[in-house]
Design a protein around this nucleic acid. Structure first.
Lengths: 237, 237
DNA sequence: ACCTGAACACCGTTCAAGT
DNA sequence: ACCTGAACACCGTTCAAGT
């Protein structure tokens, strides 16, 4: 209609510069890009906007300030958890839910802290809880105990994932250089048991640490559920 | 000696204004005050300096930038953990160490996230580890297993404390108002098991949640240690 | 040895316009 | 409905002085 038609194709004239199809999802995506590239500390309204070729103030039309932006990112991550189909085997299903959570967290390690550290009140945060409750209730666990065990599982999961994510960006690969340096520090700490265990403390196998913690948590759950069922089922026997 | 004596008592002439006896410890104390009052987000070089009646740039003489400042706070908190004398009873001692850690964390709930979230490489961070290793090794646990169990304990502890600290500043007191509001939200979530467990999910007893998690962790440790000892001690039997 | 003025390149956020 | 210029009150940090 106006002179805009003279620039060529009707839309997409110059995506990175002019109007950038701004939307909540696009903004969250850009934020995730910033986080993956430079860490959470690098997130600012201005840096995110720069990624989109837009003025920082434009973000306020779609997101409730910087805090709201980070909440939105956490929500997006929680929402992206690919919850498994349940098999009916109780331990298998618990592990599958935990694995799904972990896989999502490790996909954006720098952002993972957000999910574990922020209090999310949105619906997205409840889906994993629903999944775990489904498994626990299906195994015959009473509601009250199911909630306690749910919290236990989540605490164990977050505790290990936090360590795993903080351990640095190296992914499974053993780095001999920093490793022996770290070990030396531990040996020289003057703490006898720390020094004794220096070799084991210095190295950290992400996979192993996770597996060990989740195994233990599931173990506890299995045992608790069994004892609860015994107490109610064959009460008098 | 000089005219300073004319203000009255020799020292303490005007603490909040002039030279404020600046030192690393004083700065850390001021930072903790800011955190307790207004949360971690309120910490800035300028806000901490204001508390001390000093220019922000002066802090750089004692602390390595804002990041170094926060590290110093985390170190200070870790250093303040009052580790218990060990009794020799294994489960008792594990719990005592965990309790000491928790007590310290809950003394500055807003700051606790720092300790659990930051990677501290200083010696202060190793004292609790040494304590736990002492207990585990004393119980006859081999080094490798002791390290794994140490990590398990720490993960469980951090997982629960993080929840506990984020649950808000209310301390044990039940707040009926926000509670029923929260429950309503869960009921209306559309997730059947979440709705079913809404009452239990809405309320959260800090003490109970912690006790449950630590009981479970100690349970795991006790069992693991027993099975390890059985495997090595009466190997052939 | 410790503190600060001047200075720089950043922040988050509001509001009143512009289209 | 969405975007931005002007504007404000903040940031962290460096460096060259001052004492």
């Amino acid at each position: 209609m106006t002179h805009s038609s003279e620039t060529g194709s009707t839309r997409r004239g110059r995506p990175p510069k002019g109007t950038a199809h701004l939307s909540r999802d696009v903004i969250v995506g850009a934020t995730l890009k910033v986080i993956d590239a430079d860490g959470i500390a690098a997130v600012s309204m201005r840096s995110v906007a720069r990624t989109l070729g837009v003025d920082a103030k434009s973000l306020y039309n779609h997101v409730d300030g910087k805090d709201g932006l980070l909440d939105a990112v956490a929500e997006h991550l929680l929402d992206g958890i690919a919850l498994p189909d349940l098999t009916g085997d109780f331990a298998t299903d618990l592990r599958a839910v935990a694995d799904a959570f972990r896989a999502r967290a490790l996909l954006h390690p720098e952002a993972a802290t957000l999910v574990m550290t922020r209090q999310i009140s949105s619906l997205a945060a409840l889906a994993p809880a629903e999944a775990l409750l489904t498994v626990l209730r299906g195994a015959g666990c009473p509601v009250g105990e199911a909630v306690r065990l749910l919290r236990l599982m989540v605490a164990a999961l977050i505790g290990t994932l936090l360590r795993e994510v903080q351990a640095g960006p190296t992914y499974g690969v053993v780095e001999a250089r920093g490793l022996s340096q770290r070990r030396g520090l531990l040996v020289r700490s003057g703490l006898p048991h720390v020094a004794e265990a220096a070799a084991e403390l210095a190295r950290f196998d992400r996979e192993e640490g996770y597996a060990y913690a989740i195994d233990a948590a599931i173990d506890v759950v299995v045992r608790r559920v069994a004892s609860v069922k015994a107490a109610s089922g064959d009460a008098g026997r």
